[in-house]
Amino acid sequence: MEKRQLTCINCPLGCQLEVVIDKGEIVSIENYGCQRGIEYAKKEIANPKRTVTSILPVIGGELPMVSVKTRTDIPKDKISECMHCLKDLKVGAPVKIGDVIVKNIGNTGVDIIATKKVDKKND
């Protein structure tokens, strides 16, 4: 049996949920203020996911950096692997919003896409 404390993020109350887990299964959830807290705890224990956003250098662009994100959220424990894959990457200008920069980052099945338009630099 393991006891985990989670802060519910659905509203400013931020209920301190107390979740008891046994062999990966939720045994009980306590201290929730409403139904949304239960749903949040279930998802956060079973499969916590986050969207990762970062930046990459642009070669020949009017801006030095382009912002990027995972197209959808990825498992939380894959975040550092995702950042590691981006570490030495550079992108050639021009870049449009939605351009795929990396396919299937860290085998998550999710692509890294550009979130900013960077045109070519006029010399």
Binding site: T53, I55, S67, I97, K116
Partner: peptide
């Protein structure tokens, strides 16, 4: 503001700052 979370009320989706501005 390259993080996401913009536009949930306006566009019913989570955009990053640059995407919202665009």
């Amino acid at each position: 503001c390259i993080h996401n979370g913009f536009g949930l009320h306006k566009f019913k989706e989570e955009l990053t700052g640059p995407e919202y501005a665009e």
